[in-house]
Amino acid sequence: MPTVLEVKNLSKNYGQLAAAQEVSFSVSENEIFALIGPNGAGKSTTIRMIATILSPSAGTAEVLGYDVTKEANQVRELISYLPEEAGAYKTLTGKQYLEFMANLYSNDKKIITEYINRGAELAGLGERLKDKINTYSKGMTRKLLLARTLMIKPKLAILDEPTSGLDMINAMEIRKIIREFSRQGMAVLLSSHNMLEIEFLSDRVAIIDKGKIHEIGTSVELKAKYNAKNLEEVFVQATRQV
């Protein structure tokens, strides 16, 4: 499979604090790659550098050959990012929000309509799409945001805690959608605290702690290597050895 994302020795320092240290991994087409680690491990910093929000202190990250720092505009055409604590414009209705975002990704009316229709279908909010976002529950807003992220069918979807704040049924539905989109060719980089979710969704996993990647592999490979029952045990053992 062709590589969509190539990360090499990516680092980010805030003064003395090294939020990410020489992080390297790659994500291919059709692949779901997960970063797992506790709060403050460097997941979000790594993701934000790839999403062109933060500038790396060192190292490179390329999306289909475009550098996230030097060719950020080209990278933004290829990616779609869902931040962990993302919000939406409260004065807009759900439909207006999808329209607004779709218009930022294309100038072609036909494509824009296609994006909006897909977004509306993914959000599954029915008539509530006509309501103002400030009337939505946390779960409804999250579904709308995920729909916004995926409606443009990006080459690389960057999802930071995609099911955060969602109930079990909605979370399952969203995992299913992410899987389906991945099968259609989309590469996915996600982070999550939920090890079960990671095990269910991811093709490969990177264990990250204190800004460093400790292990990369499939869930099966990692569990076998550490003779662990689940990824939580893998995480504990992998980070203890360092």
Binding site: R48, A51, T52, I53, N73, R76, E77, I79, S80, Y81, L82, P83, E85, A86, G87, A88, Y89, M101, L104, Y105, L145, R148
Partner: peptide, 10 residues
């Protein structure tokens, strides 16, 4: 938390 989304749009 809408700024990050806007900043990653093309």
């Amino acid at each position: 938390k809408t700024l990050e989304t806007l900043l990653t749009a093309p």
